[in-house]
Write a protein that binds this DNA or RNA. Structure first.
Lengths: 247, 247
DNA sequence: CGCTAGCTTGACATTCTTCAACCGGAGTGG
DNA sequence: CCACTCCGGTTGAAGAATGTCAAGCTAGCG
């Protein structure tokens, strides 16, 4: 497999696109300086495995560009995605040497890595990284619980609609891809990866995508580019409350 | 509904059964003192709702005795449990006024509650509560991901076996209920609550329990008391790796 | 030009849910 | 004390949703 070159710019923290959402969001100037001293960038191309479950991982990282997936695999090959990391999300676990899940880049990806041990030291010696990490971890736990509802109780169609709305939402907050009420975005996952995310087979994913398309809820431009003509209509298919879980 | 009295002893922190596993585990004497100043106990009986999704929650808490469940409900009544809190587990989210899930006591329950705002102050003014909470939250996230694999990819029989092994394991670490290789424990959940945990119907739960019993993997003493004659045999039914996910 | 990877579609098999009946023990009122 | 009812649980039969297996499509690439 020829290693196509992935080249993202390596920004200074000051111009970093995730500066205000990542683990470093709350850092004071001095803390940021310490982080900067132990950081380095890594790029991966779409499809590459970053690390295998059980391997030793000597860094933790923030996703700067692209999307990474955490997946668990059973002995007989059944696979379930258990984490989908978008820009600003955190990868790795402090105080844990070995990783518990396979980590792969589902798109071209840039990580901002911190050497693990110095990062841990920072956690105990300064307050703001740890506080932000706690907040982010609690958010991820909430997301995981939403995901559990999806896996345990939603129909295939609801699963697809929910997934599309999640991607659309996270994509929309980053960039403003809304033109005259239409929402357009690129799927960061293959049909197979979507199946792993949703606890379905790729055939069922494909069928339900076709069904939503037939019913005018989504349009496809190519296989990966999705157009949502009416976001409300999509939300109606997710099975979630009308208010979108706002409380 | 007559309110049967639930009476757990209210221990001093020094004799608290969860002192070394809960959020307070890492506390120094002075931090413990501050916690003690804002703590109070609450008891609930099995089946009682502690708080509804969307309600205001002015405390956070540690489970001291018993079991509590977090569940999400869809408009049409489909329900998914998204958290099962055993002794020493933490309930509530700092810096969040409203709860996101229904919380119910599935057995008689005692909580050690901390008023939320003072607790938050402690998080920012002292290091050890926050550090412990981060650790516990990361553990819960790992558990949630294990649970996602179960929900997304396991068969009904594997789900039941996995659930039983989880309860057996957590029960065994607390007390030593092993007699001549047999493991006995009380189910803290009704069949319906098990179904909500596992993303199944209660009929399917019942059928699979019967099936495991017929095959000699488990024995039933009454409806709730489970005997595992051979833990290995149960593990073989879970679909998990032989090594039990140790890495 | 033909191959491959990713995707779609069809036919059939399987698993789980749904609907319904029934069981048994605990609590209750006559 | 007995009948009644309710709750949690079990079991059966039928149906629906999703998985499995297989064929075929399309765009991009060597």
């Amino acid at each position: 497999m020829a290693q196509r070159q992935v080249a993202f710019p390596q920004a200074d923290c000051a111009e970093c696109p995730i500066r205000h959402r990542a683990v470093c969001a709350r850092c004071e100037a001095d803390e940021l300086e310490q982080l900067e001293a132990i950081k380095y960038y890594r790029n991966y191309e779409a499809g590459q495995t970053i690390i295998w479950a059980g391997d030793k991982m000597d860094f933790v990282a923030s996703v700067v560009h692209g999307v990474a997936a955490l997946t668990q695999t059973m002995e007989d090959g059944r696979r379930q995605m258990v984490g989908l990391l978008l820009p600003s999300d955190f990868l790795g676990r402090p105080n844990r040497e070995h990783v518990a899940y396979d980590v792969t880049a589902t798109t071209d990806l840039q990580l901002c890595c911190f050497r693990r041990v110095p990062f841990q030291d920072l956690l105990s010696s300064t307050p703001h990284v740890g506080q932000r990490l706690l907040e982010m971890t609690l958010d991820e736990l909430d997301a995981a619980r939403e995901w559990m509802l999806l896996l345990g109780r939603k129909t295939a169609r609801e699963k697809i609609a929910s997934f599309l709305s999640i991607i659309a939402r996270r994509d929309a907050t980053a960039q403003g891809n809304v033109r005259k009420g239409e929402l357009t975005f690129e799927l960061p996952l293959t049909r197979e990866a979507m199946a792993d995310y949703l606890g379905l087979t790729l055939e069922t994913v494909s069928r339900q995508m076709s069904s939503l398309k037939k019913d005018g809820v989504i349009r496809l431009e190519g296989k990966r580019r999705i157009v949502i003509p009416d976001f409300e209509a999509l939300m109606d298919e997710t099975g979630d409350d009308a208010d979108g879980g706002v409380y």
